[in-house]
């Protein structure tokens, strides 16, 4: 198969970028999208042109590293699929394919198709955990958890942190990502003591990072490779509202200084 690729090239965060056109020929339909990019890069290297920088690691759809907007869609045309799980047989011979990085003010471009997603990590650091040290713990079966609750928590927890939700959102909101973590821990008994403090801290951090707000476009759900439901955004909003009513001014008091 032959393709014409229009690929975003940008040297670093401080330089302007532009779309460049490349032709790739003799690609097998069984070749994956990223393998097609590998072939392009190998051929560019042979011609002494710098290869296209892009993120990828596990190449089986779980690490969340790959991040390309393909023909305007984060992770490309297939539902429930990461870029690395996309194959060239999903395209027509002779197609022109446009490949861009995630577009969001909170995800500055590092180089070519690579963006800086550290804002996601900072949201997690603000409160995406149960505070618990390593060491002897109570017997886990002492707190039974209904299987449906555990399953729902896992539906949220399976987020791979790729950022496609942000890239797809017209407002550049990170609500699906943030709500997935808030809901995962908020559903489980282990997450209850910090539940309302967590939602406040994470939402505040999300806003501080410059992500937009949710306007119910639901583009995030459509783009999510793990098909995480926007019902979790509703759940997070309810918890956030409750938290503003429940939380005392300084929930930890003197604990914070320890």
């Amino acid at each position: 198969m032959n393709f014409t690729l229009r690929i975003w090239r940008q040297t670093d965060a401080n330089t302007d970028g532009d779309l460049e056109t490349y032709k790739v020929q003799d690609i097998e339909p069984t070749c994956s999208f990223l393998e097609m990019m590998d072939i392009l890069n190998e051929r560019l290297t042979e011609r002494n042109v710098e290869p296209v920088a892009f993120d990828s690691d596990c190449r089986e759809g779980i690490c969340g590293m790959c991040s390309m907007v393909i023909n305007g869609k984060p992770h490309g045309p297939k539902d429930g699929t990461t870029t690395c799980q996309l194959y060239m047989r999903h395209f027509e011979d002779g197609d022109e394919i446009t490949i861009e990085p995630w577009r969001s003010a909170a995800f500055p471009v590092t180089r070519d198709l690579i963006v800086d997603r550290s804002a996601f990590d900072r949201i997690m650091q603000a409160g995406g955990y149960v505070t618990v040290h390593s060491g002897p713990k109570p017997e886990p079966n002492a707190i039974p958890i209904e299987p449906s609750i555990a399953e729902e928590a896992l539906d949220a927890a399976c987020c791979i942190g790729c950022g496609a939700c942000v890239a797809a959102c017209p407002n550049g909101a990170a609500m699906l990502y943030t709500s997935a973590k808030v809901s995962h821990l908020g559903l489980l008994p282990q997450g209850q003591p910090e539940r309302f403090e967590r939602v406040q801290k994470m939402v505040h951090q999300m806003e501080a990072e410059g992500f937009g707000s949710c306007r119910n476009y639901a583009e995030c759900e459509a783009a999510c490779p793990k098909e995480i439901s926007i019902k979790f955004i509703g759940r997070m909003n309810r918890d956030f509202l409750k938290s503003t009513l429940i939380l005392p001014n300084n929930p930890r008091g003197k604990m914070d200084s320890q």
Binding site: Y129, V130, V132, S134, G135, P136, K137, P138, E139, P140, N141, P144, I145, E146, P147, A150, E151, A153, L154, A157, H184, L185, L188, Q190, G191
Partner: peptide, 22 residues
Amino acid sequence: DIIDQAVAQGVPFAREYGGMLA
């Protein structure tokens, strides 16, 4: 101890109908 630690962190292991770990 690892299972105890992971559950305390909120790792959603599979459960049986009665709520016990599967």
